[in-house]
Design a protein around this nucleic acid. Structure first.
Lengths: 303, 303
DNA sequence: CATTCTTACGTACTGCGTAAGAATG
DNA sequence: CATTCTTACGCAGTACGTAAGAATG
């Protein structure tokens, strides 16, 4: 049932163009390699190599499996590498944030942290909440700032703020301004996918109203969703405060919708088993500098 | 050497809180599970469980390995799932783009495609070039629009445009306006990491000038970098056209730097072994609608 | 003393290597 | 006929299950 050995086999056969070469690379015989590949083919009921030709060429399915093998083997390698490294107490802060945070107060946060830790190398990582959580658990991040919408005993959280989102659309796209769930569902809805915490919030919201499928465009990027909303491709539920300038400019129109989608709380998250005063201070700094209001465009303007 | 069986063992022991429970789950004996865990511990020279207590509790290293196990097992599961699915000819276009594309012409592109394929479900995925390439190979995307900076026989590309980046900083951050590589290196440089194709371009640029290490803030998000640049945290090499409004407003200042970093070409990429008229038409549409000039803020304003 | 994990030991079977067979150009 | 992969077969060592031992509360 798909072992690493099988994956190594298909990987090196494809890479080196032959079973014997792969065998050499894997310090075994070509017979053994052949069998590992045959196992894999049997397990998935499809040939991975085209044997009609003299040189081993991947089939279509084989290409797919090769990509899978490459991915899984790379990840194993990387994981081992990371694990082997001793806990390096280097001054390097890897901080994960969602796109909304990146758009709004990340610059201020970074500036505030730099004031306290001038010699620290900063690495802001912008990703969806789901990935951020994984990266925290894999120790690829020191802290993460994300929507407070899940619970995991391995992660400790500190609430830092709340964001008010409202439904928006290109002005004039909808006739009225007072709407309900079903009016929204009748439109094309632009949302973040299920990997985003806020994205799953809407799915729940629709489900609660008994609505299963809607016409949607799903993207993992808030930026892309804002752009598409401005272009009139549909309605989206977007942070009010940081888009206020666009509302004021008439590029977007806010919609009154009932029932409201609940507000989203944000939290600073870190792995429960990692304790450090640096991280504690980071959390403190985050709480102080937290502000989802102003998008970067308007902040710290030179006079 | 780290097999899936070992990972399954540590995963289920941690999850179910006992070797016997894990054994039951894995359809084997608790003795076998014990040995698989011991193997893993031997391989990495560190205990994963704290056996002083009655209930099996993960050690710190164990937590780390647990996260790795979870990650790799999930990915194997997902890969098998994906592989098993027959080539579903569903009308669902997963298009990968980099952040720059998401900021600029993605809305227009989506609008153009919707005009041609009105009943198609669109899923724009914004990620770094490296990830986009992986996702293409894993068939998680139908096409991707990314910097034309790598070659891979498994991926077919069509050039669609070019982007001019220039060095920028908060006005007044640097005294002069005419600079060279070393002046830039003396500043704090905000760049995208090595996972970004353009990010690796700068590393080459610095290396060519004989500069190895610079004071840097690395982020995977263009958005975050723009924000931090506006805040005066450092200098960055950013797309000129789409930030022209910010240059005009005096939020950013363009810098003349010698030697110039080469321009970046963009291409539509797809897997070589996937042929479809829909994809061909997408490529065509992309070429026609391509425009990195205007950030979304200014596009399609309602009169 | 019941529960939980490790150790010991004999076994079964998986997976391997050698070598022969089939297919290809 | 040289090269490349598959099959056949016997062997070896891995990994397993049973059962006993050690540790814990």
């Amino acid at each position: 049932m798909m072992t690493f050995k099988q994956l190594e086999a298909i990987y090196w056969v494809a890479k080196l163009g032959g079973f014997s070469q792969a065998a050499q690379k894997l310090h075994t015989t070509q017979s053994a390699v052949s069998k590992r590949v045959l196992e894999l083919e049997a397990a998935f009921g499809t040939p991975m190599f085209d044997r009609t030709l003299r040189a081993s060429r991947l089939t279509e399915k084989g290409e797919e499996m090769f990509a899978i093998a490459q991915d899984l083997l790379d990840r194993r390698e990387a994981a081992i590498e990371r694990f082997a490294q001793v806990e390096q107490p280097e001054r390097r802060l890897r901080i994960g944030v969602t796109e909304l945070v990146a758009m709004t107060w990340l610059p201020r946060f970074v500036a505030a942290v730099h004031a306290r830790f001038p010699r620290t190398l900063f690495e802001p990582d912008v990703d969806d909440s789901f990935s951020l959580r994984s990266k925290l658990l894999l120790d690829e991040l020191d802290i993460a700032i994300l929507p407070d919408l899940f619970d995991d005993s391995r992660i400790a959280k500190t609430t830092v703020g709340k964001v008010r989102n409202i439904w928006m659309a290109k002005p004039g796209l909808l006739g009225r301004n007072h709407l309900n769930v079903h009016d929204i569902a009748a439109q094309r809805v632009l949302t973040q996918g299920g990997r985003s915490a806020t994205g799953s919030l809407y799915e729940e919201w629709f489900r609660d109203a008994g609505i299963s499928s809607t016409n949607r465009i799903v993207s993992n990027s808030l930026m892309a969703i804002i752009g598409m909303t401005v272009s009139g491709l549909g309605v989206a539920h977007l942070p009010q405060a940081c888009l206020q300038p666009m509302l004021d400019l008439g590029m977007l129109e806010g919609l009154q919708v009932f029932p409201p989608v609940p507000d989203v709380g944000f939290a600073v998250a870190r792995k429960s088993d990692r304790h450090s005063t640096v991280i504690d201070m980071l959390v403190e700094t985050a709480r102080e500098s937290c502000d989802f209001g102003q998008a970067f465009q308007a902040s710290e303007q030179p006079s």
